[in-house]
Design a protein around this nucleic acid. Structure first.
Lengths: 343, 343
DNA sequence: GCACCTTATGTAAACCTTTACATACATCGT
DNA sequence: ACGATGTATGTAAAGGTTTACATAAGGTGC
């Protein structure tokens, strides 16, 4: 029963007294095999503890049943829930998923490219707008692929995300509705296109409200807690301060809140702050952060569904699927303090 | 050059005008082949863009060059850095790593067991003390395996972690040195053995200091932020309060701090708090958390090194590798407030 | 009772590697 | 000059699976 080497299809065939072809059919095309023999085969499988050797199967079929998910940073609080959506959908269709972790290192990216080139994955999910394959990026031949969160340069790769511009617009509209005019945008135009789109939502909102350009303050960060904190320091060195901080993501917002807290200011009493993403921590910090929720599990599910479609049909029906980002109001926003009205 | 089907070893052989055996040797045992032919082969490889088909190779060799890392929760802030250590070490030895994500769901665990049984991974790294294979756990035949953080039940699986008891001892000794006597332990004896060991450190420290049992307060949580917050609520319903909270991990400590903050208390003015793990957030919350650092990257590196050793030798040289946990002092601990001396 | 179709199973090739063994040739010591 | 030794390469089998094709048996319509 538990021999040293795992049972093969031949062991099963011998015990069931049929040919290996019949065993294979009993497993993968049960309707093609007589009830009586299917029963025998199943018993033999139970006896031997047989599981099909995925190497051999993939070799023969020319494709694996694994999907590679490549992300620059697994620790990103956005990652985990997306993954749940991806996994569930994949599993429901007989695929497994593997996670690759590049840390924005081209060398690592190349490892995964090799992995793909050796046919070890049937498809690819990309968590970054940039193909992480260094100088080979242009010539890389990829399996069917889908991006998450933002379009992948290079073109031809459909993606699933959220309407970032609209989400940002919801945040800025809330601040405007509360009476803010001088709203700082703590952004990041370098790392992700999604972030640039959020900036566009900020501008569009202020344009629509007729806020003149000289009341706009835009700072560059890199989307980390640290950069949010740094942005606050920079602003306090200038002579004008905003009444609200609209942050490109929650991490930045948390940094801003920590920075303001360290200077003794109250949120939302002295300053309002908004984030984007609704990461799990957003509800735990104090005050709980008003932010824009991304339907992460749904994004994961859709992305995988799209990839599976590609895998069977070959042609994507859609090149871009955008889900709706929702405003979630907590306690980090209020009307601007009158203390600051002079500004 | 970029045909529809990827180049095989045979294409390379034809172009280099040698046999496929020579190509294989040129790749894997270069010293066994003449310089001139090795050159021809390399050129042919460059022309065809050949990469060896991992399926076929693994099938032939009977082992893959992938290592499966199974974790209950990828979002765990401890996970990411361990992974870096694991990855670097694996990569340096020609192995790739794949990440499996069980979410404590036996069904998912079984998927990975199947994956292992079909020889798709040469080794296994386990992030939980419990084999996540449901009812098949006892009969599961596993490849060489190493645990991370805590021993794996079932036995026979070596592990790499930190001396949890000693780490906890450092935390409690700090609190005692500051003058605390009434120290609550917010623990979790159910989910991880490591947590039970931390409790042992707490008891040992108090024993050594001669703190009588009736001054000890132990609450059960589950290691989440929420459970830390809940513990605070529970304690305020009792008549006696501690002067310090020693928490089984940082998440719990953050919850405790949020709970105390919500009630208007100052840390460390009114209460001291310690954590364990030194997760990345520990430095960002206010006040920054005094905690015990786990050398995560080193743990990952060692765990992978141990697994690779197992893979080649078959026998583990050590069954347990414990690294030293360090106290990192920040701002969440001070001497007990005199307001509370009545208690 | 026979030609024909359907259904169930078996045979063997193919997927792409690696490697034991065989072969061919060159080198060396005597 | 010849057997022994060593080096470089080729031939072919094996690894476990899927599936096109072949075969056999049973059923149908006449």
């Amino acid at each position: 029963m538990s021999n040293s080497t795992p049972a093969t299809i031949e062991d099963v065939a011998r015990i069931a007294e049929v040919s290996i072809a019949t065993v294979s059919r009993a497993i993968h095309m049960p309707e093609k095999v007589a009830n009586s023999t299917r029963l025998k085969v199943n018993q033999a499988i139970a006896i031997t503890g047989y599981t099909t050797n995925a190497m051999a199967r993939s070799l023969r079929l020319g494709r694996s049943n694994m999907i590679l998910v490549v992300a620059p940073d697994i620790g990103d609080p956005n990652f985990s829930n997306i993954l749940v959506g991806l996994e569930n959908e994949a599993r429901a269709h007989g695929y497994g998923i593997l996670i690759g972790h590049t840390q924005n290192d081209a060398q690592r990216g190349l490892e995964y490219l090799k992995f793909l080139n050796s046919n070890q994955a049937a498809g690819l999910i990309l968590f970054t707008g940039i193909l992480p394959f260094g100088h080979q990026t242009m010539t890389a031949r990829l399996p069917p692929s889908v991006g998450v969160f933002e379009p992948v340069f290079n073109g031809g790769i459909p993606y699933v995300g959220v309407d970032d511009t609209e989400g940002a617009r919801k945040a800025v509209d809330l601040l405007l509705a509360e009476g803010h005019r001088k709203i700082a945008f703590i952004g990041d135009s370098r790392t992700r296109l999604a972030y640039t789109r959020r900036r566009m939502g900020y501008d569009a909102g202020l344009d629509a409200a007729g806020v003149p350009p000289d009341l706009r303050i835009v700072l560059e960060g890199d989307g980390t807690i640290e950069s949010g904190r740094h942005a606050v320091e920079q602003l306090f060195m200038r002579d004008t301060l905003p009444t609200a901080f609209m942050c490109v993501n929650d991490q930045t917002a948390i940094g801003v809140m920590v920075g303001l807290g360290a200077r003794g200011y109250d949120i939302p009493g002295d300053f309002s702050v908004t984030g984007f993403d609704d990461v799990p921590q957003a509800v735990f910090i104090s005050p709980p952060l008003t932010t824009i929720r991304q339907p992460r599990t749904a994004i994961g599910k859709q992305a995988m569904a799209l990839l599976l479609e590609l895998l069977s049909d070959g042609r994507p029906t859609e090149t871009e699927i955008l889900l709706r980002p929702d405003l979630v109001v907590r306690n980090s926003v209020s009307a601007p303090s009158r203390n600051w009205s002079k500004r």
